[in-house]
Design a protein around this nucleic acid. Structure first.
Length: 772
DNA sequence: GACCAATGTCATGTG
DNA sequence: CACACATGACATTGG
């Protein structure tokens, strides 16, 4: 239990450190709570560095002694460990980073502009908008967006990889792995959840079907009549029952508009609008209206039916991103859109009719047909070909984005989007405090967030326009930095398997496995030591020679194993302290042909140099058994061994010191190895987080782009709807004097601009106060 | 000879 | 309490 606690605390601590180091602005609370297990596992990994392997316990259970912690040839143990790590790696992408990058590089060109930016890639954004919208190849465009739909979903890591296309099975598998990785990372799962999307799509489908069922509605106006609406004889437009004296407050029930907009975004789907008609009317205190009229003004279309599912969360997630778009839209498209003199409503800006005379019934009808489903192809060519001046930046909405945004918009008031920013300076907040205006408030709030987001983007050197580049950079960077994507457990096992220990005297059998190196020599043992003792006597030099301590006796198994593991290269040295390099090994056993009389001394010298200090001491003290035994024997056997000999106090003391030092030496090795593993794991985690950061930024850009497109669509719809409105005399309303306002309950009001401005100002103050 | 990395050793803490 | 281990700090060693 305590180890588990330590495990958790360490993980959290490291996770926090990593986050702070990288500066990833991830909503930890959001992701960590739901994604804690995978995240933690990613951060920590099945690292052996955190699981302090009890080697001694292992040894004690495995035939007593003879198993050096570094030479563990424990097939059972490490095989099981490796297999376990492999199993664990199944939900973790553990292929080398370079492989991941290679795949991404391969994938980017495949997925249109880039894998993450389908049909509406940034490269296309500034160029093809108008053509795509107005061009004759709308059908092609539709298909493109359809394709982009799946790709987008896939990129967002929310759906299963696409089965179609030129992707090979391996690619699909990779995609799937990456997808699962994304899911594990918890990035936007709430937003990208496939079932969630599916649900939205279903809703959209229903909506679309519903629209189709009302196929005959727009043209006939029968339903409008049934709803106490008056149909304009000339335009076929539906008006609410006449407003008595409602000159300033000319409120119209614009069901066409609503349907049109609804087809774009299911505002009313799951909307729980706090606003009701009373609040709306409160927002217009100066005007008094008969209650009957108010009711007539309400459109029944947008009453929420779907239960809200964490809309707030989604909204927060999205709004933090999407509002960055507002400036762009407002400053680019919108300003151009509404830069015309106020008195000229039907000029180029609002000129739906003059340049492209539209059969209102037809267009509205078609708008009502389309659901907010796959894309915005529901906008008929007539609609899309509206001569919007700024439509050069108008792109067909990425379908997936639209679907993901649907629920978001569902709970919001689009009044802010309805109002051309320039005509009324309070485009985002048309409702006063009395008029609950979710969108307005959120927009304002998010506007402020937008600044911080921008700052974040700037300080991170992130240019939304360079998202794809950034993506590649991040990926490549992370790929270049380290080869630390290996499984830590594999590292441990490999190192462990490549290491062994042997006694100084049994170096001749050093190449054998650890178990063999600990051959039961019995109490007499010391066979090879006798050889060295002879040499010692021959040399007449006995005693401690510190310079000889460098080369520890180490059994050596397979150097190629080490060299085959690139991530071990930068380790640079052999952590297997008790092993000798293969060169030394071979030096230990030189070919007999090269063994001359003169070289015998050299060999002895060399052997001497390979002995550790303690080995020299032991030899000097005539310790009758090997240091390996001294060190590695379990206590009982060790004591038993000591009891077999009549050892002096000095010898016993030395033996105990040797044992203590030897054990501590191994412990130090393990400790350092763990430390190294930890560092490597942290580095890999940093890479992962960098990748996540890049991906999140990428997704942010996508959301911003889709939001901008959405706003542009809404604005164009606003223009269209507004342009179709006619007063009693059949004349269009002046956009400088009137504005459409979207109430929370789904109704759309045509109110004077002065009133809208007032409400907007009131709404403006509200979020500011809230922020205090 | 300074510097550095690797390694060994000691003291101390933990289980 | 003994034992084994972990680990920080320092020492040693060799390049």
């Amino acid at each position: 239990m305590l180890s588990l606690k330590k495990y958790l605390t360490e993980g959290l601590l490291q996770f926090t450190i990593l986050l702070s180091l990288i500066g990833v602005r991830v909503d930890v609370d959001t992701y960590l709570t739901s994604q804690l297990p995978p995240l933690r596992e990613i951060i920590l990994g099945p690292s052996s560095a955190y699981t302090q392997t009890q080697f001694h316990n292992l040894r004690n259970t495995l035939d007593g002694y003879g198993i050096h912690p570094k030479s563990i040839d424990l097939d059972n143990y490490f095989t099981a460990r490796r297999l376990l790590s492999q199993v664990r790696a199944l939900d973790r992408f553990q292929v080398p980073t370079t492989e991941v990058n290679a795949w991404l590089v391969h994938r980017d060109p495949e997925g249109s502009v880039s894998g993450s930016q389908p049909s509406s890639g940034l490269a296309l954004e500034s160029s093809s908008g108008l053509q795509d919208v107005t061009g004759p190849d709308n059908g092609v465009r539709e298909s493109e967006t359809e394709q982009g739909f799946s790709e987008d979903l896939e990129d967002l890591g929310a759906v299963a990889p696409p089965v179609s296309g030129d992707l090979t099975k391996e690619d699909i598998d990779l995609i799937d792995i990456l997808w699962r990785q994304d899911i594990d990372l918890g990035a936007g799962r709430e937003v990208f959840d496939y079932s969630h999307r599916q649900k939205e799509q279903d809703v959209d489908k229903e909506l679309r079907d519903g629209g189709e069922q009302e196929d005959t509605w727009a043209g006939e106006g029968a339903e409008a009549l049934a709803r106490n609406l008056l149909v304009d004889g000339e335009t076929g437009e539906s008006f609410p029952a006449q407003v008595p004296g409602g000159e300033d407050q000319t409120a119209l029930s614009l069901e066409e508009c609503l349907r049109l907009l609804e087809a774009t975004c299911p505002f009313g789907e799951n909307a729980e609008f706090p606003a009701d008609i009373s609040s709306i009317t409160e927002a217009v205190p100066s005007e008094s209206e008969p209650p009957a009229l108010q009711n007539n003004l309400l459109s029944p279309l947008l009453t929420g039916t779907e239960s809200p599912f964490d809309l707030e969360q989604q909204w927060q997630d999205l709004m933090s991103i999407m509002e960055m778009q507002a400036m762009e839209v407002n400053t680019s498209a919108s300003e151009i859109l509404y830069s015309a003199p106020p008195g000229d409503p039907l000029s180029t800006n609002y000129s739906l009719a003059p340049n492209t005379p539209i059969n209102q019934n037809v267009s509205l009808h078609q708008a009502s047909l389309g659901g907010c489903s796959q894309d915005f192809s529901l906008f008929s060519p007539e609609v899309e070909s509206l001569p919007v001046a700024s439509s050069s930046t108008l792109l067909p909405l990425v379908p997936s984005n639209s679907t993901s945004l649907n629920s978001t918009f569902g709970s919001t008031n689009l009044a802010g989007l309805f109002f051309p920013p320039q005509l009324n300076g309070t485009a985002n907040d048309t409702a006063g405090p009395e008029l609950p205006d979710p969108l307005g408030g959120l927009l304002d709030e998010a506007m402020l967030d937008e600044i911080s987001l921008m700052d974040l983007a700037i300080e991170e050197g992130f240019n939304p326009v360079q998202a794809s580049q950034l993506e590649e950079e991040f990926d490549s960077d992370s790929g270049l930095s380290l080869d630390s994507s290996h499984s830590p457990s594999s590292l441990s096992s490999s190192e462990g398997s490549s290491s062994s220990s042997s006694s100084s005297s049994s170096s001749s059998s050093a190449s054998s496995s650890a178990s063999s190196s600990f051959s039961e020599e019995g109490a007499v043992g010391y066979s090879s030591d006798s050889e060295t003792l002879d040499l010692e006597e021959a040399e007449g030099a006995v005693g401690y020679q510190p310079e000889y301590s460098k080369f520890c006796r180490m059994s050596y198994q397979d150097p190629s194993q080490l060299s085959c593991l690139p991530y071990l290269e930068h380790v640079g040295h052999n952590h297997t302290y008790n092993m000798a390099p293969s060169a030394l090994d071979s030096a230990d056993l030189p070919p007999p042909s090269t063994l001359k009389k003169g070289s015998k001394e050299k060999q002895a010298d060399f052997l001497d140099k390979q002995m550790s200090r303690d080995e020299h001491r032991a030899r000097a003290m005539k310790i009758p058994f090997t240091n390996d035994k001294i060190i590695n024997l379990p206590v009982e056997e060790f004591n038993e061994l000591l009891s077999k000999y009549q050892l002096s106090e000095a010898q016993l003391s030395l033996i105990r010191d040797i044992r203590r030092r030897g054990k501590n030496k191994m412990a130090a090795q393990n400790c350092r190895k763990r430390k190294l593993d930890t560092i490597l794991n942290l580095e890999r985690d940093v890479e992962d987080l960098q990748r996540d950061k890049a991906r999140l930024l990428r997704e942010k850009v996508e959301f911003l782009r889709s939001l901008r497109q959405m706003k542009q669509k809404v604005q164009s719809l606003y223009q269209e709807v507004f342009g179709r409105l006619r007063d009693e005399n059949g004349r269009p309303y002046s956009p400088s004097q009137y504005a459409l306002q979207y109430a929370g309950d789904g109704s759309v009001l045509l109110i004077p601009r002065t009133m809208a401005d007032q409400q907007a100002r009131r709404q403006e103050r509200k979020p500011k106060d809230r922020r205090k």
